[in-house]
Design a protein around this nucleic acid. Structure first.
Length: 273
DNA sequence: AACGGAACCTGAAAGC
DNA sequence: TGCTTTCAGGTTCCGT
């Protein structure tokens, strides 16, 4: 589920659910979400009794600034299937619940993550994975000169390079796929073969797909691709074999589904060059 | 330094 | 019906 738009949505909800609240207890049901070298007791000691001061996001990472006996930064990465929900602290653990923070006011936030690829870390303000992130397209915008400069050093397919979080933080498989489509760019193109104009077009595509996806989940009706009955809100992602939504019907152009860098990629061989 | 592929996990859906 | 295979939005490690 989580790429930049979903993580930003998670940030907003977590902010509403947690800022100003004081942690009473921390529960970690499955320690596999913790980093090596960390432990349940380290996390509990850092967070219990602390008050949530702010919830921030950079790329796909979230972090809470905790004020209290021991000021701390609490980092959360949702991995592939992580999400946060708010429930009464009295309610029993939910299916796939791996951790939770219970607050003194009787509310709690629950971390659910079936596949356990998410992370739950207490770290410093300059936590390395956070510091290693490139610019965030929403927070920082996209610097075309910088992006073109990075592309010039990469021979890999442009869509693969977009997944490098040091290039742009938060772009995932869906957003990279959609951005290439919007930019009419063949995702297999070597990054170092793009013209400045194509880089600019791609940057616009990235910004647009992120904004569109985010706008689509405002309010409570979050749409997840995998949810039964939910419509696929994307232009081409998950639509391999369907007609291209942009090419004239008479051309019969069909979306192709390939694998790049181990990730499924959908594109139109006719209009994406 | 950069690249492709495997590994880490589990559940849902599709295939037979 | 029930068993098997395939696939999934991310990151990291490893050999080349």
């Amino acid at each position: 589920m989580p790429e930049l738009p979903e993580v930003e949505h998670a940030r907003r909800t977590l902010e509403a659910w947690t800022v100003g609240r004081t942690v009473r207890t921390v529960n970690v049901a499955d320690a596999r979400i913790l980093d090596d070298g960390s432990s349940v007791s380290i996390v509990q000691r850092a967070l219990a009794g602390a008050t949530v001061n702010a919830v921030e996001r950079r790329g796909k990472w979230l972090r809470m600034r905790m004020r209290g006996p021991r000021p701390a930064w609490f980092y959360s990465h949702l991995g592939m299937t992580g999400r946060w929900l708010s429930r009464s602290a009295a309610l029993a653990p939910l299916r796939f619940e791996r951790a939770s923070l219970a607050f003194r006011d009787g509310t709690s936030v629950r971390y659910l993550d079936p596949r356990l690829f998410g992370r739950f870390v207490v770290g410093p303000e300059d936590f390395a994975p956070w510091e290693a992130l490139g610019p965030d397209p929403l927070l920082d915008g996209i610097d075309l000169r910088r992006l073109a400069g990075l592309f010039a050093t990469r021979r890999a397919p442009v869509k693969t390079v977009l997944l490098d979080q040091a290039v742009l933080a938060g772009v995932g498989n869906i957003q990279a796929t959609e951005a290439c489509f919007l930019a009419r760019l063949d995702p297999r193109r070597a990054a170092d073969s793009l013209s400045r104009k194509e880089v600019a077009s791609l940057a616009r595509g990235i910004t647009r797909t992120i904004r569109t996806t985010l706008a689509g989940m405002e309010g409570e009706t979050v749409v997840y691709v995998s949810e039964p009955g939910a419509d696929n809100p994307f232009l081409v992602y998950g639509r391999g074999g369907e007609p291209c939504p942009r090419c004239p019907r008479r051309t019969g152009a069909m979306l192709d589904r390939i694998v790049l860098g181990g990730r499924t990629t959908v594109f139109c061989p006719r209009c994406q060059r």
